[in-house]
Design a protein around this nucleic acid. Structure first.
Lengths: 115, 115
DNA sequence: TGACATATATCGTTGATCTATATATAATGC
DNA sequence: GCATTATATATAGATCAACGATATATGTCA
């Protein structure tokens, strides 16, 4: 990724699965889409994405199919399975809990209001 | 850490430095404090914290001094230097940018409002 | 012809975090 | 008295996500 590479860990699958939750995409497209949606904050590397997609496929979270493009190499589209969608929801919830907790500490947790 | 260990990377130094930005603490205390402030979300491990503190010391971001406790082993307190405070502010800004970008993508970035 | 964008893919390295283990002291239980 | 647990610090080895580098093939543009 970029920015500060040390905030990244684990959130890349989350972001990629979010894109696939909306519609099928091919790899290169995900890189561009992620860059666009994050206002140029995320620069996902090909060397990071493709192995990730293969690992998602092994887990049964995505399936892949090839389709010819009007020009250039055929594109490999990825589709999020039902299992993948469930995994995504879980990851999303976990991220929200995590980000909230970090925010809470950074806010100056000295006083933490109960409920 | 815990929760989902794959959201953690890089945020531990941030959280630890946040605690030290308020006052000097010893290691064991940081573990307890972080757990408390995050409502039991963060379970920082001793094997993670102490090597981290040593690396912060090497960078000149913290200094350490020993002080006797009323009982038990003497405690090693850590103090955030001016340099450390500057580094913390930077990390905090980077985290906020990162978390915001993730949130933006998760919100359903199809339409991204300019400005 | 060479450079560049598109598009997918693999390999070796780095490095943050984890688990396991070690030390020492004080309090608690048997 | 002796074992266990909590306090407190510390190191070593393993894991694994992400990185950079590299390889491939095609199409476009100069």
């Amino acid at each position: 990724m970029d920015l500060d590479r040390h905030f990244v860990s684990g959130s890349i699958p989350l972001l990629v699965m979010k894109l696939l939750d909306e519609k099928d995409l091919y790899g290169y497209q995900m890189i561009e889409e992620l860059r666009r949606r994050s206002d140029d904050t995320f620069h996902l590397r090909a060397g990071t994405l493709y192995p990730l997609l293969h690992s998602l496929e092994e887990k049964g979270w995505v399936t892949a199919y090839e389709r010819e493009a009007s020009a250039g190499k055929p594109r490999r589209y990825y589709h999020l399975t039902e299992q993948g969608r469930a995994a995504f929801r879980e990851k999303e919830t976990a991220w929200n809990a995590y980000a909230r907790a970090v925010g809470q500490v950074l806010k100056g947790g000295a006083c933490h209001a109960g409920a």
